[in-house]
Amino acid sequence: MGDVENDALRHGFETRAIHAGQDPDPSSGAVVTPISLSTTFAQSDVGVHQGYEYSRSGNPTRTALETCVASLELADHGLAFASGLAAEDTVLSVLSSRDGGAPSGRVLLANDAYGGTFRLISKVWAPRGLAWSPVDLTDLDALVAGWPDDTTVLWLETPTNPLLTCVDIEAVSAIAHERGATVVVDNTFATPYLQQPLRLGADIVVHSATKYLGGHSDVVGGFVAVSDGTLAERLRFTQNAAGAVPAPFDCYLVLRGVKTLAVRMDRHCSNARAIVDLLVRHPAVERVFYPQLPDHPGHAAAAKQMADYGGMVSFTMAATDRLSGEDAARRVAAGTEVFTLAESLGAVESLIEHPAAMTHASAAGSALEVPASLVRLSVGIESSADLVADLEQALDDL
């Protein structure tokens, strides 16, 4: 058991979210981590300094964020990035070019992954020589039977964006490790409050810190958590060499958001349940995707590895005599008042979107294409009664 996990036994999640990496400032006693704007740091002699030389390589505010979120993920190492995709790009760079040469190997990607991840792998890395295949990670027998010999990386989200598919991290990690592959888990939807993939066998965790970690729709960021020291060293080298690092103020904003992550996630989850209760009984809704529902394909996996079921809800609209499912979905997405029609997710305000035309448009025509009748909700922390009433009027108004 590592030092980080030992620390977790001494202090609970909420305590670490507020205090890990965030001791009072020694020079002033400030209880809020200062924003260190300096790009360079004085040296007492050539190569002798206090841990920082140049802010691309390291910054005190970034260190505080990296220490805190690593602790929440039960990881020995954490690395902050300028965006979630910058974090993913760095991971792909390290895992696909282990000898510093051209990309090689194959990424097995969940067949309903986030559109941005699909675009990065299929449109940026594949032309450079990295092979990839979409796979159904809920069918373990098929995964084993169809495993390509050149696979080096298994990349998954759980729950997925936007269909909320849940994958048994422990089971697929065991399959991947038996075949020499590295397991990467995008934990953005669950957050470390609900799920810790490293504890379940994953090798690397990635986040879009823009979402639940930041939590207020005011900062773009990414994060990587890992416990393997050698892998962490390679990731940090590439982080510094490529330079896709967050600004100190961005680190401060994510760190501030993390302090309330636990209480926000509790409200996100309870509000999502109220929305699901409406959707499952409304005649205009064809199907509801939420891991807590007993008929959800990933319910067993979610119940096994998540502390709660999250704040994301998706549903498909039924076609009517007047409207196709896609038309109905578009009208509902544009017909709410408390829910804001916008991309992104995971913040205090509730958002609604039409994935096929918005966040997942890049997957059109591919194996990862999403239904045109799909609506995705990021359920915020407003009054649950207001959210239910708002969505209900949009559904009734079709």
Rank of each mutant, 00 (worst) to 15 (best):
54 Y>H: 13
54 Y>D: 15
54 Y>W: 13
57 S>W: 15
57 S>I: 10
57 S>P: 05
58 G>A: 11
58 G>R: 09
58 G>C: 03
64 A>T: 07
65 L>F: 11
66 E>A: 07
67 T>M: 11
67 T>S: 13
68 C>M: 11
71 S>I: 03
73 E>T: 10
73 E>P: 03
74 L>S: 15
75 A>L: 09
75 A>I: 11
76 D>K: 12
76 D>S: 15
78 G>E: 09
78 G>S: 09
78 G>T: 04
79 L>V: 07
80 A>M: 06
80 A>R: 01
81 F>L: 09
81 F>Q: 07
82 A>V: 10
85 L>W: 12
85 L>S: 14
85 L>I: 13
85 L>P: 00
87 A>I: 04
90 T>N: 12
91 V>E: 00
91 V>L: 01
92 L>I: 14
93 S>A: 12
94 V>K: 01
96 S>K: 05
97 S>F: 00
98 R>K: 12
98 R>E: 14
98 R>G: 08
99 D>T: 08
99 D>R: 11
101 G>Q: 10
101 G>I: 07
103 P>Q: 02
103 P>E: 01
104 S>K: 14
105 G>E: 07
106 R>G: 07
106 R>E: 08
108 L>S: 01
108 L>C: 04
109 L>W: 03
109 L>F: 02
110 A>D: 11
112 D>H: 07
112 D>S: 13
114 Y>C: 14
115 G>C: 02
116 G>V: 06
117 T>A: 13
119 R>G: 15
119 R>E: 15
122 S>F: 00
122 S>E: 05
123 K>T: 14
123 K>E: 15
123 K>G: 10
124 V>T: 13
126 A>R: 13
127 P>H: 11
128 R>V: 08
128 R>M: 15
129 G>C: 02
130 L>F: 08
130 L>P: 06
131 A>M: 11
132 W>Q: 09
132 W>L: 10
133 S>G: 08
134 P>I: 10
134 P>R: 11
135 V>Y: 03
136 D>Y: 05
137 L>Y: 06
137 L>C: 07
138 T>P: 02
139 D>P: 03
141 D>N: 10
142 A>M: 02
143 L>R: 00
144 V>L: 06
147 W>I: 12
148 P>V: 07
150 D>P: 06
151 T>Q: 06
152 T>G: 14
152 T>S: 14
152 T>I: 04
154 L>N: 02
155 W>E: 05
156 L>W: 00
158 T>H: 03
159 P>Y: 05
161 N>T: 14
164 L>G: 00
164 L>R: 09
167 V>Y: 02
170 E>S: 14
171 A>W: 00
174 A>F: 02
175 I>N: 00
175 I>Q: 03
178 E>C: 04
179 R>A: 05
179 R>N: 07
181 A>V: 03
